[in-house]
Simulated scan of single mutants.
Amino acid sequence: MEKIKIKTETIDLGQLLKWGNLVSTGGEAKAVINEKRVKVNGEVETQRAKTLKPGDIVEFEGQKYKVVAS
């Protein structure tokens, strides 16, 4: 499981996908979330503005990423 370090207390799902270089643009983040290709803590997530915090697990393209504080 890879780790994505954030510098803030929380981060929106769409921002995390861009910050972690999982997608290139905000539009791409919106598309993959709307296509139900992203899970948060094991559940399909359809809200781009879903607030994530350290300890949350994001699944995308068969990989898992843990949100951690830097």
Rank of each mutant, 00 (worst) to 15 (best):
V67K: 03
A49Q: 15
K5N: 08
K66V: 14
N34P: 09
K50H: 15
A69V: 10
Q15M: 14
M1V: 11
K30Y: 06
M1C: 09
Q47C: 00
K39V: 05
G42V: 05
F60Q: 02
T46F: 06
K30V: 08
G42P: 15
L16G: 13
S70I: 10
T51G: 14
G26F: 02
G26E: 01
I4W: 02
G55N: 08
T51F: 08
E9H: 03
T25F: 06
D56M: 13
A69W: 05
L22Y: 05
D12A: 12
I6H: 07
A69T: 12
N34G: 05
M1K: 12
A69Q: 08
Q15D: 15
A29N: 03
T8P: 15
E2R: 08
L22M: 02
I6S: 08
G62P: 11
K53L: 08
I57C: 06
E35Y: 12
G27P: 12
F60W: 03
L22E: 03
M1E: 03
D12K: 11
I57H: 07
V67N: 11
N21T: 05
I57D: 09
G42N: 12
S70F: 04
D12W: 00
S70H: 01
D12G: 14
I11V: 15
E2D: 13
V68D: 12
V40D: 09
L22P: 05
V40Y: 05
R37I: 08
G20M: 07
E59F: 06
L22K: 02
K3E: 14
G42Q: 06
E59Q: 04
T51M: 10
V23P: 07
E59H: 03
D56E: 09
G62Q: 04
E28M: 14
E9V: 13
G62D: 03
D12E: 13
L52P: 15
E61G: 06
E2F: 07
V67I: 15
V67Y: 02
L17H: 07
E2T: 08
E59A: 08
G26Q: 09
V58K: 00
K64M: 13
V58E: 04
V58G: 13
D56R: 00
Y65F: 14
G62F: 00
E9Y: 06
E45L: 00
E35Q: 08
N34A: 13
K3T: 09
